[in-house]
Design a protein around this nucleic acid. Structure first.
Lengths: 243, 243
DNA sequence: CGTATGCTTGAATCACGTCAACTGATGTGG
DNA sequence: CCACATCAGTTGACGTGATTCAAGCATACG
């Protein structure tokens, strides 16, 4: 396959020109996957990793009861979805699409070759999985230390930041095709309570959601309620203020 | 410094002889740090990573209120404490000792040299940060999807497993010098409630804690209450059943 | 000794979850 | 084309699990 012509956005935008070009050379194909499809199952051996080009994906662990699962990550365009399966060849959780997705496929064998030839590019890839880890820590913090309203605000603030960095949020408006149950799984609370908190945030003049679109009216207040500090994701130098 | 003579236990036991030897060659010193000491502050540039040889360490993000912080990880001997700061040169959270610790220091410059010479060793190091990430996901799951008793049981089960793999738990007995407030920060609940749940677990004949020592009386039941599945940490093949 | 720190327990409160009913939108098959 | 099912959202009533406040103890320490 000739090198695909993919935008370098969001997380991948941190890669240097050289790293990005070399990585793209290892891409075997670009695939499209419909919404709500299970893409990888945990404990299955994996021999490729995916870069999300378009759409939204979730990572989750099956919960204690048949219906209850916990979302542990949400991926936006520019993210490597399961690059962490490269060093170990397996995954400890499931991966699904949320809406229709376009994905670039990178065989582990090709990545391994690349890492041997250009160890510096390997470190760049490594650092993407490290950022993924920082996001996990922030999810722990959110669910463990914040009350319902703060959790919701913090979650929305994170999505706004990441989608903005991926060029997909403008003036505090962005698409987020999650159901309230999805958000419940992500924030560790019931769908019903999500609904109420969303109403409170709307009545507070903070932000509003309708049919998968979020509009933020007061970003500063949203950050305050959610104790959101954008630097968890970025070096200070990258911190982009405001909208 | 000549290569220090350190045990390869727990997480580091997964490294091959060759990787382990090469990594040890990059060790600049071994230091001792007293209990309850802040070792690294978040957002500070870091030029070295640490391997925990002896003792217990915690990683936490300062919480919304002066007193409330959230613990995002707990490190046991054999763990690399902040290897994830190598690719990026910074940390998004604080690192502290819990009790007296012995730590091996690895300058990033030396690690970088090693990764260039032996990319395969780099991938081995990478995979240790990936396992760290898997633990984060499990913490998210615990706090987000389990009720108080399940959280506590799950947490204790994880500690038992990791300490056992590090050779520090025998017959379900091990030292865990955490206060109930510490456990509260780790499990996202109040210290008072930790106390009550601990009593319930004891009365259930599950496990008991006194003065920093945990004794598990019924591991299977503990796993059931905590919905604990040891495979989150390990490949199937490594799964060590029972005590 | 006295003071600090961690553990323990009770009582009051409240933030959430659960259950249930109703709505509107979308889709499907007879 | 309509009857019916399904699924997301919304809201109310109710119960409960967890927090908070408070007090009492034990132990370690200067």
């Amino acid at each position: 396959m000739t090198r695909p012509d993919l935008d370098r956005r969001g997380m991948s935008a941190r890669l240097s020109d050289r790293d990005w070009a070399s990585i793209l050379d290892t891409c075997s194909e670009v695939v499209e996957i419909p919404a709500r499809t299970l893409v990888s199952r945990r404990d299955e051996p994996l021999d490729r990793s995916l870069l999300l080009v378009e759409g939204l994906m979730s990572r989750h662990v099956p919960g204690p009861y048949r219906d209850r699962r916990e979302m542990v990550a949400l991926e936006v365009p520019g993210d490597f979805v399961d690059l962490h399966s490269f060093p170990t060849g397996r995954l400890d959780h499931d991966v699904s699409t949320v809406d229709d997705c376009r994905l670039a496929v990178f065989p582990h064998s090709a990545l391994r070759k690349l890492v041997h030839i250009q160890p510096e590019t390997g470190i760049a890839l490594w650092s993407m999985t490290v950022t993924d880890s920082a996001i996990h820590r922030y999810w722990s913090f959110r669910v463990g230390a914040l009350p319902a309203m703060g959790r919701m605000a913090n979650f929305i603030a994170e999505m706004e930041l990441r989608l903005r960095l991926a060029g997909l949020a403008h003036d505090g408006r962005f698409s987020l095709p999650l159901t309230q149950s999805d958000m419940g799984e992500a924030c560790g609370m019931s769908a019903v309570h999500i609904n109420r908190v969303l109403r409170d945030l709307r009545e507070d003049g903070c932000c509003s959601i309708q049919s998968g679109w979020i509009e933020i009216h007061d970003l500063e207040r949203l950050h305050r309620i959610g104790h959101f500090e954008p630097t968890f994701l970025l070096g200070e130098q990258d911190y982009i203020v405001g909208r």
